[in-house]
Design a protein around this nucleic acid. Sequence first.
DNA 1: ATGGAATGGGCTAGACTTCGATCCATGCAA
DNA 2: TTGCATGGATCGAAGTCTAGCCCATTCCAT
Lengths: 240, 240
Amino acid sequence: MQHVAMDAATSRLDIPPAYEVVVDRLRRTILLSIYRPGDKFPPERVHAEQLGVSRVTLREAIRVLEGEGLVETRRGATGGVTVLDRRVSVDALRRRLRDSLGELEGVSDFRLANERCAAERAATRITREQLEGLEASINAMRDCESVAEFRAADSSFHIGVAQAADCALLRRAVEDARIELFTYLDALDYELALPTTISAHRRILAALRTGDPKRAGRAMGRHLTTTWAEALAVIEEPAG
Amino acid sequence: MQHVAMDAATSRLDIPPAYEVVVDRLRRTILLSIYRPGDKFPPERVHAEQLGVSRVTLREAIRVLEGEGLVETRRGATGGVTVLDRRVSVDALRRRLRDSLGELEGVSDFRLANERCAAERAATRITREQLEGLEASINAMRDCESVAEFRAADSSFHIGVAQAADCALLRRAVEDARIELFTYLDALDYELALPTTISAHRRILAALRTGDPKRAGRAMGRHLTTTWAEALAVIEEPAG
DNA sequence: ATGGAATGGGCTAGACTTCGATCCATGCAA
DNA sequence: TTGCATGGATCGAAGTCTAGCCCATTCCAT
C-alpha cells in the first residue's frame, strides 16, 4: 500500500471545538464580503439562535474575530458587533503576497478552471430570476466607491454565476478560490479597474443570455485572465 | 444586503462531534480506495494515537462504518478492522444513479475542469520521483482483476497528478469529485475498460514527460471525456 | 493441552465543553 | 430620568472526550 495519499489515512485529525466552527463560518462571510465593513451582526441572542449555538459559544468566536481585527463590539442599545475595515501595513502585505506568489498563482489557475466551467454550465441552466440578480450586482458595482463595496458586488456576481451552474462542488470551489485570492489582495486598496470589470461582467451576462456555453466560458476566461494580470501588476509594482 | 449568499451567514451550523470527524476521514479513505477491501486498519491503540483521538472515539466511528457495511471487526490475535467489499443490489443502484444523473453530470464537469487544470500545472512541476509513482500505478493497473484493485490504481494515478500540480485546492477538488463519482458507480461492477484506461494513462504520462501543459491537459481531457461516456453507457444500459 | 501475545471490548473517574438561565453593566432615545 | 435593547459575566447541569485499567477472544508457539 504505497499510495500517494496514504498519509491521508493516518495523519492527525483536526477536531474543531464548536467556537472554531463558528469562527470559520463568520470569517468566511466577512472575507467573501457577505458582511461588509460597517455591517452589524444580529443581536447576540438572535444570532446564536440562528447559528444553532449558545451565546457563550458565539461570544467565544467573536472574541477570536476581534483578536484578528475583523470586528469590533460595542455595548448599549445601539451597540453590537460591527465588521471593521481591514487595514494592514501595505508594504508588509505586498512583501507577504510576493513571497506566496507561487501559491497564489495556483489559486488563480484553480479559479479559472472552475469559474469557466461554472459559466459554461450556467449558460444552459440559469433562470430569469438569476439573470436579474446578476444584472443587479452589475448595477450595484457602477456606483461603488470603496474596495469593500466593489468586492461585495463582485462576489455577488461571481457567486451568482456559480449558483446558476447548479453544482454544489463548483460553488464551493468558486467561494474557496475567492477567499484565498482576495482576502489579502483587497487590503492593498489598489486603484479599481471598475469600468473594465463592469464591461467584462456585462459581456459575461450577455453570453449567458444567449445560452451559448462556449461563449460564456470564453467571456469568463478572458475576464479572469485580465483580472489576474492586473493583480500581478499591483503585487509587483514598486512599493510606494 | 440582498446577497445571493446571504443565507450562508445565518443558517444553522453543523458542529460535528469528534467521532463524526473520524467517520468522515475513514470513509473518505475507503471510498478513495486508499484502504481497499481486505485491508486492515492499524490496531486500535495505534490507530487512535495516529489520528489523535481516544480509543473510545475511534471505536464509536468504527461502529458507524460497520453500520454502513463498509468494515467488519474481529477480535483475537489476528483480528482487527477489515475493509469490506461493497455490494449493493445492482438494479436498485442503477435506478438510483439514473435518478441523480443530472447531479452526476455536474460532478463530471467539475472533475474535467479540475483534472485538466491539474494536468496542465503538473506538466511543468512534476518531479522525477512523482513521474515514477505514476508509472508504478500504471503497472499496478495492468495486472489487476477486481474493480477495487482497478480503482485503487486509478486513484493513485489521478491523485498523483493532482499532487504534482502543487495546489491544495486542486487536489482536494480532484478527491471530492472522485468520491462523488465512483462511490456508487463502482458498485455496479461493470466490465472494466482496462486496456483503454491504461493506454490513456500512458498518453497522459508521456505528455507530462514532455513538459507541455497544453498537451497534458488535452490528454487528460480526452481521457475523462471517454470515461464519462463509458460510465453513462453503463448507467443507462438496460437492467440485466 | 497450555501459556503468551496481540487483538478488540467494556468500564470508570475526571477533565473539559457546551448549554440554558439568570443577573449585571452600558449607553442611546424618548 | 426612565425605559429598554444591547453586550458581559457567572453558575450549575448536561454532554463529550479522554486516559487508564482490566476483560474476552483468538491464534500460535511450545
